[in-house]
């Protein structure tokens, strides 16, 4: 009887270990990458070039589409908000507490995840299939320094910059909507926003953006590395990576909300 119970408990433990192995693996990889942020060898001309290219593909190339989306959202959200909320204080809280701190990072992370995370996942998986990792190893080029950190730093920078840009565009659009459509003075609108602005919220927003950027690039890299040397493993790897990126986005969103409302 006791042996059966021990076996049952063992099975539960094994299932738990198996179920969380991916999470543990990701966290261990994240720690490893994070520690390399402080390694001087990470910051060399080759890594900088990769970083610039990544930032170009992730943030600059997407900019026209991104700004267009931000302006459309700005008009929609501000139009609805000004119609629905007559009290300027509530409007300020809605714009700062929801649009800036929740909606802006969410839209940005979705766009970056859909465009860049999938590309990074595919790129790493293709490199693995082509045995290009062996090339780098052969020439003593550290994968974390040269391949991973520039991409992850790009994720962090892009998220912070694009989210801020999105928020600024939405708020500027709000200024237009409020003054041109609803006749609110610029001073009133700005004062309303200022009254609703909490420095702590902005700090949490920036940390959240950086965390989003870190994980939506780290996870595709890790999953891409797990591809085998067969071409057919590439789509499977991308599929797994994108699902895990989605789970990471939801998890970070929930955690940041908990921290904000504690």
């Amino acid at each position: 009887m006791i042996s059966v119970m021990i076996a049952a408990i063992g099975n539960i433990g094994r299932a738990a270990m198996l179920g969380t192995s991916s999470l543990r693996g990701t966290l261990a990889f994240a720690v490893r990458v994070f520690l390399n942020f402080f390694d001087r060898r990470t910051y060399n001309s080759a890594s900088l070039m990769v970083f610039i290219h990544q930032l170009y593909f992730t943030s600059v190339q997407i900019l026209p589409l991104f700004l267009f989306v931000a302006v459309i959202f700005g008009f929609l959200i501000n139009g609805m908000a000004f119609n629905a909320v007559k009290n300027m204080d509530y409007l300020g809280r809605l714009l700062m507490g929801f649009v800036v701190t929740e909606l802006s990072p969410f839209i940005t992370v979705l766009l970056i995840a859909l465009r860049s995370s999938s590309a990074i996942n595919t790129e790493i998986a293709v490199m693995k299939v082509n045995r290009e990792m062996s090339t780098l190893n052969s020439f003593r080029i550290d994968l974390i320094h040269y391949l991973f950190i520039p991409r992850i730093l790009n994720g962090v920078f892009s998220m912070v910059l694009l989210t801020s840009l999105f928020a600024l565009v939405v708020l500027s659009t709000g200024l237009l909507v409020s003054s041109l459509v609803f006749g609110t003075s610029v001073d009133t609108y700005v004062d309303t926003l200022l009254r609703s602005t909490d420095v702590l919220d902005i700090v949490i927003l920036l940390i959240k953006c950086a965390t989003f950027g870190f994980f939506i690039t780290l996870i595709p890299i890790r999953i891409g590395l797990s591809a085998s040397e067969e071409l057919t493993s590439i789509p499977i790897s991308v599929l797994n990576g994108m699902v895990k990126v989605f789970v990471a986005i939801v998890t970070i969103e929930v955690l940041s909300s908990i921290i904000r409302f504690i």
Binding site: R131, E132, S134, S138
Partner: peptide, 12 residues
């Protein structure tokens, strides 16, 4: 080491 081999291709 400067290895020239089809097993260590160019970065595509």
């Amino acid at each position: 080491l400067g290895l020239v081999s089809p097993d260590i291709p160019l970065i595509s």
